[in-house]
Design a protein around this nucleic acid. Structure first.
Lengths: 205, 205
DNA sequence: GATTATAGCTAACTATCGTTAGTTAGTCAA
DNA sequence: TTGACTAACTAACGATAGTTAGCTATAATC
């Protein structure tokens, strides 16, 4: 790993633990194993480090979204692939998204950092909203809309369905603690199970 | 309002906007209309201000919980009072809780501040969890448990019901923006409406 | 009227902040 | 071998942090 990458990921970890203002260039440098002034060989300023973290996360996020929601093509075509197996697929979406933001070495501290900085920094606020609220809700609204049209889901406001599916994931993420991983995952799966029992049309058997 | 109270509420507002570390005693003093050194006539340190905010919120929170969830007595007795009018009452709980933490002059900035500081400050983290996650979930779990026993709600895991009821409120709070109040309130009520459609047993009419 | 307490002030302390200048050792290409 | 580049370093800059000491004016108390 290059020194630049090491600075970036160390800064992310420290920012997530103590906040942007709570981490000095000297602390960061010490943690990396160099002197504060040397950081400026890699980044032009402290803010530059922060912005680079944002850019790095944006790139990784695009990758993971494509990885988790494998079904390619338009959302209509994507929805077809869920027909007949909504619960497993929903489990996969919820679990994948959750584990990524709860445990990934980059995404987990990023979520904490951006949560902490959302009110202090306009860009952080926008990223928080887009990544953890609107982005997730919009995608899932579209998904459920198609599942309703295809008769897989009972007919009601897809925005509310998306809210009912995603909000518990969001809350469990916000309250996630490594020491209670198993318990949290069980709750998550119970939620998805209950969710599909409520919203997925019973199959004629 | 005494100077001490003014310092407290001004500090809360500034902390919620720029974070604890992002607000200097001089800025706070200027905003209050005095000099930084004068603050020490009222508080022993910056941290003392922070802790005083926590104590003040704890007091106000107890009051509001009692105000919103009016039914007194044990939770079993409380649940009886919901019989036959679950949707209106749920609407009241969700709406009351939501509006309080979204718009109250103390609770709204407090929620932002504590959200920002939760990972940096152990006490703030505990307060966040207790006030916005566990406290709400535990109370509602108990409530729904009783509503199930009394045959008002369909029979399933009360913890999951509580999660399904509260998580959307939590998410809407986290994404609350004054400029979209009406839209958010509509979504909130749609959620409650849909929630009771799914969980409240149909009354024989 | 004298005394005490309250609550503001100025000035200054030490510590630390982000950042810059200038230096040095190592690497690699011409 | 030289020269350019990289990435570390030491030292220091001005600004600002939280806080303290000591002063003053007003209000309350004896």
């Amino acid at each position: 790993m290059t020194t630049k990458d090491l600075i970036l990921i160390t800064a992310l970890r420290l920012f997530s633990e103590r906040g942007y203002d709570g981490v000095s260039m000297r602390e960061l440098a010490t943690e990396v194993g160099i002197k504060a002034a040397s950081i400026y060989n890699h980044f032009s300023s402290k803010e530059d480090i922060f912005n680079s973290i944002l850019v790095e996360m944006q790139n990784r996020y695009e990758q993971i979204v494509n990885t988790i929601n494998v079904p390619a093509g338009t959302s209509k075509e994507a929805a077809k692939q869920y027909v007949g197996m909504p619960e497993e697929k929903l489990q996969q979406i919820a679990g994948g998204l959750f584990l990524y933001f709860a445990k990934d070495e980059f995404a987990a501290p990023f979520r904490k950092m951006i949560t902490s900085e959302q009110y202090r920094n306009t860009i952080a606020g926008d990223v928080f909203m887009q990544m953890f609220i609107n982005g997730a809700l919009e995608y899932q609204t579209e998904l459920f809309k198609n599942l309703i049209e295809q008769g897989e889901f009972i007919d009601c406001d897809p925005e509310i369905i998306a809210l009912h599916f995603y909000a518990p994931v969001f809350l469990l993420l916000a309250s996630y603690d490594e020491t209670k991983e198993q318990e949290t995952m069980e709750t998550l799966y119970k939620h998805v199970n209950q969710f599909s029992r409520l919203y997925v049309k019973r199959r004629s058997e």
